[in-house]
């Protein structure tokens, strides 16, 4: 403890930035580092999949059928003789893409909404946040199912629908941040310089609220991925010929009695990824010293 304090002081004298400081703290958190490493690995694999996947995505071997893990097929094959590892790699591209894109949608709407409400204040703020309160009370899981049924199961809609659900908390967090920031001198200075509200929000408020935004984003990604997997499992999310981890788990569950590996490996992949993201999010929260509840 004592040495920590001393190094902290020493670093303060060298003039470490908030980010360097956070990085040092994050690196001490083994679980968070583990999460980061796993996540980066997953992303790299997902990006390189078309080149490094052991088999082609649509390669079938009907003579082989479902076979347990072997030297030729590390994680086994499904009933059509398709390589499971290849399926998981391609599925991961979709699962991760949904996670990141839908979270970006949520981030964009939430940060903009919260920043405007917090900055303008007054009646606008009251109306905007009241709307958020009302939307919060809506049972969104049911609404997403409804949306997928009504508008067909397409992926863009899936991104938008999930993003549209997850922005609410982001808006609340952002509003709280902006409300406390806008009282500070540097914002007053920006106002007196005649900058437009949009510029002030973009240049001065958002960068200063980055900590909570990053932490909450990291924690939103796993819940978005879970939502996608949930919908795909029910058959309302990703549709064949595309695949995702949720869809693979759903197929695996159907045939688990005879071919348990088809359930276990996709399940393991999804669980490890969710674990990593949660650990990383918790670690970032501690490292960036963001208080407040997760929800």
């Amino acid at each position: 403890m004592n040495t920590d304090v001393i190094t902290d002081i020493a670093q303060a004298e060298e003039g470490t930035s908030l980010w360097q400081d956070a990085w040092v703290r994050l690196r001490k958190n083994h679980l968070a580092v583990f999460g980061l490493v796993v996540l980066v690995t997953m992303i790299v694999i997902a990006l390189l999949t078309p080149w490094i996947a052991p088999y082609a995505y649509d390669a079938q071997n009907l003579d082989l059928g479902a076979s347990p893990p072997s030297a030729a097929h590390w994680l086994g094959t499904d009933v059509f003789g398709r390589d499971l590892l290849t399926q998981i790699m391609y599925g991961g591209r979709i699962s991760l893409a949904v996670g990141f894109i839908a979270t970006s949608v949520a981030l964009l709407i939430g940060v903009t909404w919260g920043a405007i409400a917090g900055y303008v204040g007054g009646r606008t703020d009251a109306i905007m946040m009241r709307l958020v309160d009302i939307l919060y009370a809506l049972p969104f899981m049911i609404f997403i199912v409804l949306l997928m049924v009504v508008f067909g199961r397409n992926m863009v809609l899936l991104f938008l629908a999930i993003g549209a659900v997850e922005w609410l908390t982001m808006a609340r967090i952002m509003r709280g941040q902006v409300q406390s920031l806008r009282q500070q001198e540097f914002v007053e200075a920006a106002v007196s310089l005649g900058l437009s509200p949009a510029t002030i929000i973009r240049r001065h408020l958002v960068p200063n609220a980055l900590g909570p935004i990053i932490v909450y984003t990291t924690l939103t990604i796993p819940s978005v991925m879970l939502l996608e997997a949930f919908l795909s499992f029910l058959g309302l999310g990703i549709q064949p010929p595309q695949t995702s981890w949720g869809l693979l788990i759903s197929y695996g569950a159907e045939t688990m009695e005879e071919y348990p590996w088809l359930l276990i490996y996709p399940g393991l992949t999804l669980t490890i990824t969710l674990f990593s993201l949660n650990f990383l999010g918790d670690g970032l929260r501690d490292a960036l010293d963001v208080r407040g509840s997760k929800d």
Binding site: F230, L263, L274
Partner: peptide
């Protein structure tokens, strides 16, 4: 508890069936 949170229902269910049922 962390495992419980990260393990989705649609995975836990089939796994429990596989273990205790089958």
């Amino acid at each position: 508890a962390m495992i419980g949170i990260c393990m989705p229902t649609f995975l836990l269910g089939p796994l429990l069936v596989l273990l205790f049922g089958i």
